[in-house]
Amino acid sequence: MTQPTILEIAVCTVTDRPAAEQARRAAMQAVRSFPGFVSWRALTAPDRQDLIADLVEWTDKPSADAAAARVQADPAFAPYMATIASVSLMQHFVTAEAI
Rank of each mutant, 00 (worst) to 15 (best):
R17Y: 00
Q22W: 04
A76W: 00
V31G: 06
A19S: 09
C12V: 15
V94Q: 12
Q91K: 15
A19K: 12
L89D: 11
Q49H: 03
Q22V: 11
A66M: 11
T5C: 14
F34Y: 14
R70C: 01
E57V: 13
A45L: 04
R70E: 01
S88P: 00
A26P: 04
V14S: 05
P35E: 08
A66K: 15
T95A: 12
C12N: 11
S39V: 03
Q22T: 15
Q29E: 10
A64W: 02
A96V: 15
L51H: 13
A10E: 03
D50L: 08
Y80F: 08
T13C: 11
V38H: 10
D50S: 14
T2I: 06
Q3M: 05
P75R: 02
P75T: 06
R32F: 07
R70G: 02
S86P: 00
S63H: 10
Q49G: 14
A53F: 09
M90R: 06
T13Y: 01
H92M: 04
D16R: 12
T83F: 01
A82G: 08
S86V: 00
T5Q: 13
A20V: 02
R70T: 06
L55A: 15
A20Q: 07
I52E: 04
V11K: 13
A69Y: 14
R48C: 07
T59M: 07
A85Y: 00
R70I: 02
P79N: 11
R17G: 07
D60P: 12
A73Y: 08
T5M: 12
A23E: 01
T13A: 07
R41Y: 13
I84K: 02
T95I: 12
W58E: 05
V87M: 09
D16H: 12
